[in-house]
Simulated scan of single mutants.
Amino acid sequence: MNVFTQLGQWLSDPNRWSWTDPAGIPYRTVEHLWFSVLSLLVAAVLTIPAAVWLAHYRRGAFLASSAVNIGRAIPSFGLIILFWFLASRWGADTNFWPLLLALVGLALPPLFTNTYAGVVQLEQETVDAARGTGYREWQIMLKLELPLASPVIVAGARVAFLQLVATVAIGAIVNDGGGLGRYIVDGFAEGVQGYGEIFGGGIAVIVLALVCEGIFSLLTRWATPKGLALQNARRES
């Protein structure tokens, strides 16, 4: 039996398209997105306010530059194993906290770096003009720097989220969840008979990543202020 025949049989399972059965692709997709979105939101809350404040006062430049290298050096699977070990030692839920903490750790560097860079690269004349009109520092950060830096911030969130989508699948190795990655792990456990499930799970992860990429492309356009978009369009023309 070839892999395509196995894939067809796997997809024809009555529970494969269930929203409530763990065997269902919709169920696993929601689980996959839940971990990815929650991790991105937690990382954004921890990172963006601090990065905006540091960039506004021109502090933490070394930290911002180091965050890129830290993000590249962190092994995602190693983080998951580390937090799983700690959770098991402390009696915490090993099906939730290890994966969540590892995902948050992976999302922090790109979010911090892009937020910091987005604020720092703004023209100082614009900030000085806002001060001249009576804006306080917190108003400049919230009403000027954050909106103008939003396209760069969303770009960082885009990179982080795609990394999270890929890493959630790896998380299936150490917990009962793992979203769509559950199919890949279970397929390997079945040996030759699981090739169809592995293939189907891999396709599902790829499709989900491409859909998320498209959504973030739209979010980037939506997050760009109209004035800034017109200015960029004039520069390109």
Rank of each mutant, 00 (worst) to 15 (best):
Leu41Ser: 13
Leu218Phe: 13
Leu162Met: 14
Thr47Arg: 02
Arg89Pro: 07
Glu190Gly: 04
Ile140Thr: 13
Thr113Ser: 15
Val45Lys: 06
Thr29Met: 06
Ala155Trp: 04
Ala67Ile: 07
Arg158Gln: 05
Gly181Ser: 08
Val45Glu: 00
Phe77Pro: 08
Pro14Ser: 09
Gln231Ala: 13
Ile81Thr: 15
Ala172Cys: 10
Leu230Thr: 14
Ser150Phe: 12
Trp10Gly: 01
Arg182Lys: 15
Gly187Ile: 07
Phe62His: 13
Pro22Val: 05
Ile215Phe: 01
Phe112Trp: 13
Pro225Lys: 10
Ile81Gln: 10
Leu38Ile: 12
Ala189His: 15
Asp128Ile: 02
Leu106Trp: 11
Leu230Asn: 14
Gly91Phe: 03
Thr133Glu: 00
Val168Cys: 03
Leu142Ser: 15
Ala23Lys: 13
Thr133Leu: 01
Ala160Asp: 12
Glu236Leu: 07
Trp138Leu: 10
Gly194Thr: 09
Gly181Gln: 03
Asp93Arg: 10
Ala155Ser: 15
Phe83Asn: 06
Ile74Gln: 04
Leu146Ala: 12
Tyr116Lys: 08
Ala169Ile: 07
Ala155Tyr: 06
Trp97Thr: 10
Pro110Trp: 05
Leu219Gly: 08
Phe199Thr: 14
Gly191Met: 03
Ser88Lys: 11
Ser217Trp: 05
Ile25Phe: 04
Arg234Ser: 11
Arg182Val: 04
Glu197Ala: 03
Gly118Val: 08
Leu208Tyr: 05
Leu11Asn: 04
Pro98Val: 03
Leu63Gln: 12
Ala73Gly: 14
Ile140Ala: 06
Tyr183Phe: 15
Leu219Phe: 11
Asp93Met: 02
Val168Pro: 03
Phe112Met: 11
Trp97Phe: 11
Phe161Tyr: 14
Arg235Lys: 14
Gly156His: 07
Ala157Asp: 00
Glu137Phe: 08
Leu100Gln: 15
Glu145Arg: 13
Trp138Ser: 15
Ile70Arg: 11
Ala64Lys: 10
Gly8Tyr: 09
Gly134Glu: 04
Leu111Trp: 00
Ile80Pro: 11
Lys143Thr: 04
Tyr135Pro: 00
Val174Met: 04
Ala160Tyr: 00
Pro49Phe: 04
Arg89His: 10
Leu142Asn: 14
Val3Ile: 15
Ala102Pro: 13
Gln163His: 03
Ala73Lys: 14
Pro98Lys: 02
Trp97Glu: 01
Met141Asp: 06
Gln193Leu: 01
Gly191Cys: 00
Leu106Gln: 12
Val104Pro: 05
Gly202Arg: 02
Arg234Trp: 04
Gly78Phe: 11
Lys143Ser: 02
Ala160Trp: 02
Arg235Tyr: 09
Glu145Ala: 05
Ile173Asn: 09
Arg136Pro: 07
Trp10Met: 02
Trp90His: 09
Ala130Lys: 13
Val52Met: 01
Leu122Gly: 05
Trp10Lys: 00
Ala129His: 10
Glu145Cys: 10
Ala223Gly: 12
Pro225Ile: 03
Met141Val: 08
Leu210Asp: 08
Asn15Lys: 15
Thr20Phe: 00
Thr94Arg: 10
Gly214Leu: 07
Ala189Lys: 15
Ala233Pro: 09
Phe216Leu: 03
Ala23Leu: 02
Gly118Lys: 05
Trp19His: 06
Ala44Asn: 11
Thr113Gly: 02
Arg59Thr: 09
Ala44Leu: 09
Cys212Asn: 08
Leu144Arg: 12
Arg16Tyr: 05
Gly24Ala: 00
Val211Cys: 00
Arg235Thr: 14
Pro49Ala: 03
Gln163Leu: 04
Arg158Pro: 02
Asn2Gly: 11
